[in-house]
């Protein structure tokens, strides 16, 4: 932990940014469902997405304006992703994949907004996707859809996913457990990948920022050295923008690939 010497500049620990803090305490039955900072940023993200798309598609011009162009580019981007990966009958999953993509993208990006200095801790910007329970829930949702759709479309032939045809019989006892483990690890890897990326990026950002404050607090020659972690934190910040977009894309494309596996399980 880094403690700043300069009054007014308080470097928080790298984990403090992930703390869940209640804003409005709520209970449902005897379950605690308080409106927390996480819920606040989920709501902000969803409202921002809804408002943006609402105004972007309000006029529905033949020659799109700037906002409509962005909305249409996003639409086409995800639609092409779904069409290329699952095929044309996969377009029924398009709304789900699009919602997933835009939700994660917005959560990742909004988490990168710097907090207002001096604002209450529970109103600081918060990356909802930096919590494993959120990403794991999204991953489980995807896998649940995959399993339900797989069985609904292929019946028991969905189980061929674990035993690819053309496999020698003696390899079955080795390969089938491997396939099953690989299938079961999908939601874990899907959820942990997004979570760990966000966690790592924000910890590193906070560490670099903490170095700056610590060096400034030390005074004298060390204060001049503070420029190095400052530039470093800018570089990491830019990298995080790339990671934020890339992870949303990866989550969407992996969702598409798993859905495509479910759709074509009986074919191979």
């Amino acid at each position: 932990m880094i403690h700043a010497a300069t009054p007014g500049l308080q470097a928080a620990g790298p984990m403090e940014q992930f703390e869940i803090l209640p804003i409005v305490p709520l209970t449902l039955g005897n379950i605690d469902v308080s409106f927390t900072n996480s819920a606040l940023w989920m709501t902000i993200g969803v409202v921002a997405i809804a408002l943006f798309f609402f105004f972007a598609t309000n006029r529905r011009a033949l020659i799109p304006g700037r906002m409509q162009s962005v909305a249409e580019i996003l639409h086409e981007f995800v639609a092409n992703l779904v069409r290329d990966t699952i095929g044309h009958d996969g377009m029924k999953f398009f709304p789900y994949v699009f919602t997933l993509f835009i939700f994660i993208l917005t959560a990742n990006f909004f988490g990168l907004i710097p907090s207002i200095p001096g604002s209450p801790h529970n109103l600081h910007t918060f990356t909802t996707t930096s919590h494993i329970i959120v990403t794991f829930a999204l991953a489980m949702l995807t896998i649940t859809i995959v399993i339900i759709y797989g069985f609904a479309k292929n019946g028991l032939k969905f189980l061929k996913l674990f035993a690819p045809s053309g496999l020698p019989i003696w390899l079955m006892p080795i390969l089938v457990p491997i396939e099953i483990i690989s299938f079961l690890s999908r939601p874990v890897s899907l959820g942990v990948r997004l979570f760990a990326n966000m966690l790592a990026g924000h910890i590193i950002l906070k560490l670099f920022a903490g170095f700056v404050i610590a060096l400034l607090g030390a005074g004298g020659f060390a204060s001049i050295l503070a420029i190095a972690p400052f530039l470093g934190s800018i570089a990491i910040f830019l990298l995080e923008f790339l990671v934020a977009a890339l992870q949303a894309y990866v989550f969407a494309i992996l969702t598409c690939i798993y859905l495509s596996d479910a759709a074509h399980a009986a074919d191979h």
Partner: peptide
């Protein structure tokens, strides 16, 4: 529980808005 609850609410709402109106 709180995170899951609010994730379900917000994500569900977003899915509904997206699939029924915007997309």
């Amino acid at each position: 529980p709180s995170q899951l609850f609010w994730l379900a609410v917000t994500f569900g709402l977003l899915y509904w808005v997206m699939s029924s109106m915007i997309l």
